[in-house]
Design a protein around this nucleic acid. Structure first.
Lengths: 352, 352
DNA sequence: GCGGCCATCCAAACCGCTTTGGATTTCGCT
DNA sequence: AGCGAAATCCAAAGCGGTTTGGATGGCCGC
């Protein structure tokens, strides 16, 4: 635990060559057990730790994974992004990799990737929240930089490695649940639909309606950044209209909380007068659990997705020739307190 | 924009030495204008970019700032942390620094710092959310690793560089506002008080009460992770008690939303029957603005704090001999829709 | 005409590690 | 004994930059 010796000093103290010491520490076989022991002991007596820059230079691997976040992402995806990062970070550190974040404004995103590639700042990157017409994967391919996608790139599913949940399926099931409860006027508060995930969710919603011969009502569909006020304002407007929805399908817990606030402000009860189903990314600061969760939801842990995406990326780096393999996760459909049978339509309904 | 040449190849193509090329590119004076031009031109024709590992090794500076997040932090501070990071990240990239995150479980936090120091992974670090009895700064001092604190370390204010808001003052003012509105039963939903910021906030609350000769009621004080359910459940319990509060002072928007939900569920109106003041970290996904913000709040941008903390750290690295200099920011007190005069006490009050 | 001073440029050392290509010793086996 | 294989270990060559300590040549002043 002293100041910090380097390999040279360490090897001198041991009367061994740098080669042998290096090999002993890195677990190569051509060194005797006894020597290895001596080396290990001296190494930690002197508090030796290899300089990572030197090691990286020598091995040609930067032992880091890059995440570039354009401002547009982190404006809205904030909490989800961090949760993903937290999951990925664990995997990285377990494998001795570092994680570097680059915050850039949207116009410099491409530059950021080029820099990572040309200056060898990372061995691979993660693509976050792919859009409908995505181009980053083409650039990365050209730069020869391994990557995995959190989400899917439409049209490139087969040739890329990705981790995603079944967005369409989840919202289809959620919609069916509402339909089964008798709701027919269902509002959709979606995320920005130029993002792939939101696009798929809408399809799930529409498919479920169509399967029962219902057409979606454009007046009940919104798309935007998934903030709390977004949920509240739109729900308020819809509930105030003359043909209000009896149920909401919401793309994020945060907006769902806003919807719940609106419902309360209208003097209605969530789960009784108005049903809400939300997607739940299992964010740690927005727990939706307990005996009966507050919100009925489709749940899929973003954190877990981060862990898995990281594993796939590291595997890809370790063996660049391997075929792309992806992870397609089902969301859980969890019944909470926010759903109930559709209220009977007739006005002036009697009690009980 | 070709594959990627290195300095050697570049210098050969130019019939110059590596020395000269390196100097030309790094802006040293001992190279003629003409040569510099030629070098620059060829460099970008061949798409030359210096290998960062090599440069780091040669210069001995890692050009990176480390952030280590123990699991305990990111469980609860999630969104705030990311917002800070986003601010800091901008500063870093503007100065050519990288940002590396290390996610560790609490027991390995110290190891993480030791590794950063001994393997030279970063030139400095940021200490996040200091506790009441904090020890990280001692370790970092011992490791000789420059750092700045986001928040303050009690007892070490003078000898460390930090960026913090005036927590005590903010909550004192907020409490005074409520008192001025006639509220006397004010509940405090605080963050975990083993953290310095929460501790200060409570003092602000208590000081304001004391100044008017009021004693805080322990039944109206809570401390915990600032989740949404935390706000809701506790507000619910307090509002259901036989001597309920008429106002809430909350440490985080997220919990405040929970409080608002509870108020609604009790059939009461926020800003009329019950007042709420929250601290607002100006998180981008929880906007609390508009003509009249939803919540009356004390606001201080965490993002800005991140930018500033990063600047201080980089300055400190550039000149290690400089005296510690800190940034102590005032929070804005912003009147929103969630506060109003205390309702008249008498039960069975007549209308209007 | 000559020493001195800039202005330019370069060869080589160095940063701290990994890895190649032997050298040396030991040992089993015929 | 003799020999090849196996076990250990090492000197030195990278990795791709930066930086030190000169070289070289032109120009000025005396």
């Amino acid at each position: 635990m002293s100041k910090g010796v380097n390999l040279k000093e360490l090897s001198q103290r041991l009367n061994l060559s740098q080669t042998t010491v290096s090999r002993a520490l890195n677990g190569y076989p051509e060194v005797s057990a006894e020597t290895r022991r001596r080396v290990a002991e001296m190494a930690d007596r002197l508090g030796y730790a290899p300089n990572s820059q030197a090691r990286r230079l020598a091995t040609g691997r930067s032992m880091a994974i890059g995440h570039v976040i354009p401002r547009s992402i982190h404006e809205m995806m904030n909490p989800i992004f961090l949760e993903f990062i937290a999951g990925a970070g664990e995997t990285y550190s377990r494998h001795g990799y570092d994680m570097t974040l680059t915050v850039v404004d949207d116009t410099h995103e491409e530059d950021a990737y080029r820099q990572i590639a040309s200056r060898k700042k990372a061995d691979g990157v993660i693509i976050h929240s792919p859009a409908n017409e995505e181009r980053r994967h083409l650039l990365l391919r050209e730069l020869n930089l391994p990557f995995v996608v959190h989400g899917r790139i439409p049209g490139a599913e087969a040739e890329t490695t990705w981790v995603d949940m079944k967005n369409r399926r989840a919202f289809e099931r959620a919609t069916n649940l509402l339909l089964d409860l008798g709701h027919t006027r269902i509002a959709l508060l979606n995320g920005l639909e130029h993002m792939d995930f939101a696009h798929r969710r809408r399809r799930g919603f529409e498919d479920a309606l169509a399967a029962r011969g219902l057409a979606p009502d454009p007046a009940l569909m919104r798309r935007a950044d998934m903030t709390e006020p977004y949920g509240c304002e739109n729900a308020m407007a819809m509930l105030g209209s003359d043909n209000p929805p009896t149920a909401f399908l919401v793309s994020s817990m945060i907006s769902a909380i806003g919807v719940a606030r609106a419902v309360g402000q209208c003097g209605l009860k969530v789960g009784k007068d108005v049903s809400i189903i939300t997607h739940d990314d299992a964010l740690s600061f927005l727990p939706n659990c307990g005996e009966v969760p507050i919100f009925t939801c489709t749940r899929s842990s973003v954190r877990y997705a981060g862990e898995k995406a990281a594993e796939l990326l590291l595997a890809m780096i370790a063996d660049p020739t391997a075929k792309p393999s992806s992870l397609h996760m089902d969301a859980e459909l969890i019944i909470g307190q926010s759903t109930g049978p559709a209220p009977s339509p007739g006005p002036g309904k009697a009690a009980s």
